[in-house]
């Protein structure tokens, strides 16, 4: 791949008191890639992702997003990224359209743009009839897809997804990944954390974290070959849980 790197992380370390959540991470993500961040609970996935989004400050190390230094231009970076986490971030007491309107407005879209993108989005998810329903009354699977669509409403260069499919059934997960692929096809870079190994198979490249350190990084096929196993599940058990097996 000769594409440019859009996320560059060098020697990133984050400590909370004496606990080291991220230990000297160095990696890069290329433009248009679907990059998976894997690891057991507490491996430091979310911590790193929050630093990349500018929600948290690193203890040391540098982060460059779309060519901008994260510690100097947090506000410029925020215009070109989208973010969605498992914890629900749409307003439950607003309707689907009001949520779209809110986030569209925040990112500076004009009312006309908001209207057209909203129609497009609802049409694509085929939920035009839910337009004026409160989020509270929209089923969970749909809410997650909506949250993703709203997170990319302003067409960011990169979208960060923190365990986006937690608590969703396999079919809805499959549909969710279709959305991710669509976004990637349009040139968007997708940075996703997960602990579902079947999802890891969908990524262009994955990075496996354990105890705050990078244990493996590469294309899923290559990792499987290196470990001489058939599934990402086995790769994960071998790498991430090697201290326990």
């Amino acid at each position: 791949m000769s594409r440019e790197s859009i996320i560059e992380v060098e020697n990133l370390t984050k400590r909370f008191g004496r606990f080291t959540a991220n230990d000297n991470l160095t990696f890069e993500v290329r433009e248009g890639e679907v990059f998976g961040f894997l690891g057991a609970n507490g491996a430091g996935k979310t911590t790193a992702l929050r630093i990349l989004c500018g929600l948290s400050k690193p203890t040391s190390g540098t982060v460059r997003i779309a060519g901008l230094d994260a510690s100097h231009h947090p506000d410029r970076i925020k215009k070109v990224i989208g973010y969605m986490c498992q914890r629900f971030a749409l307003y439950e007491d607003l309707t689907v359209f009001e949520n779209i309107q809110l986030y569209g407005g925040i990112y500076g879209l004009t009312p006309r743009e908001i209207r057209s993108r909203s129609d497009e989005l609802l049409d694509k998810l085929s939920i035009t009839d839910l337009r004026n329903r409160l989020i509270r009354s929209v089923p969970l699977g749909w809410r997650q897809k909506l949250a993703f669509s709203i997170a990319v409403l302003h067409r960011p260069k990169i979208v960060f997804l923190d365990e986006p499919t937690g608590g969703v059934d396999p079919i809805a997960r499959r549909q969710f990944w279709d959305l991710i692929y669509d976004a990637a096809r349009s040139g968007m870079t997708v940075f996703v954390t997960t602990h579902y190994m079947d999802e890891a198979e969908y990524c262009d490249r994955v990075c496996i974290l354990s105890g705050g350190r990078i244990e493996a990084l590469g294309r899923p096929e290559d990792l499987k070959t290196t470990c001489q196993v058939d599934t990402m599940d086995e790769v994960f058990i071998r790498i991430a849980r090697k201290d326990q097996t």
């Binding site: 929600l55 925020k78 990224i81 914890r87 971030a89 439950e92 925040i106 500076g108």
Partner: peptide, 13 residues
């Protein structure tokens, strides 16, 4: 609810 976090990743000042 976590909605404030969503606002924090937007360019809102």
């Amino acid at each position: 609810l976590g909605t404030i976090e969503q606002l924090n990743v937007t360019p809102i000042r």
